[in-house]
C-alpha cells in the first residue's frame, strides 16, 4: 500500500487543504500509517454488522416548534466579516450587468 504524490494532491483537494506534496514526508507518513492499518485484513469480519455508535437508545424526535434560536447577533458577532445580519463571503456569482 503506497500513498503517492498524486493521491496526496487528490485527497488534500477533497479536504480543502493546500499541502506541499513535493515534501515527501506526507507520502511517507501516510504510507507507513496505511501499511500499519493493513493488519485489519487479518480479522475475519464476514457477516459482522458494522458498529457506528455506542449511543444506547434510538434518537428522539423534538416537538415540531419553530425557533430562530434567538441568537443571531451573538453568532454573527464572531464572524470574520459580516454586514446587515449576513455573513460576507467573496463573490460567488458574477453580476450579469
Amino acid at each position: 500500500m503506497t500513498i503517492d504524490k498524486k493521491t496526496i494532491d487528490d485527497v488534500a483537494r477533497l479536504a480543502r487543504l493546500t499541502i506541499d506534496s513535493n515534501d515527501t514526508h506526507w507520502a511517507q507518513n501516510l504510507t507507513a500509517i496505511f501499511e500499519w492499518i493493513a493488519q485489519l485484513e487479518q480479522v475475519n469480519t464476514d457477516g459482522v454488522e458494522p458498529l457506528y455508535s455506542m449511543a444506547d437508545h434510538t434518537l428522539q424526535a423534538e416537538p415540531d416548534e419553530r425557533s430562530d434560536g434567538g441568537c443571531r447577533d451573538a453568532v454573527l458577532k464572531e464572524s470574520p466579516q459580516q454586514s446587515d445580519g449576513f455573513f460576507i463571503v467573496p463573490t460567488v456569482i458574477e453580476r450579469s450587468d
Binding site: 500513498i3 493521491t7 496526496i8 485527497v11 488534500a12 477533497l14 479536504a15 487543504l17 499541502i19 506526507w26 501516510l30 500509517i33 492499518i37 485489519l40 485484513e41 480479522v43 469480519t45 459482522v48 454488522e49 458494522p50 458498529l51 457506528y52
Partner: peptide
Amino acid sequence: LLIGTYVLSAGYYDAYYLKATKVRAK
C-alpha cells in the same frame, strides 16, 4: 484530515471505514 478524507473517499470506504466499524463490533 488526509487519513479521514481518504478512508471515506469513493473506492476506499468499504476497505477501510466499513472494515474498521466491523472490527469495532468485534
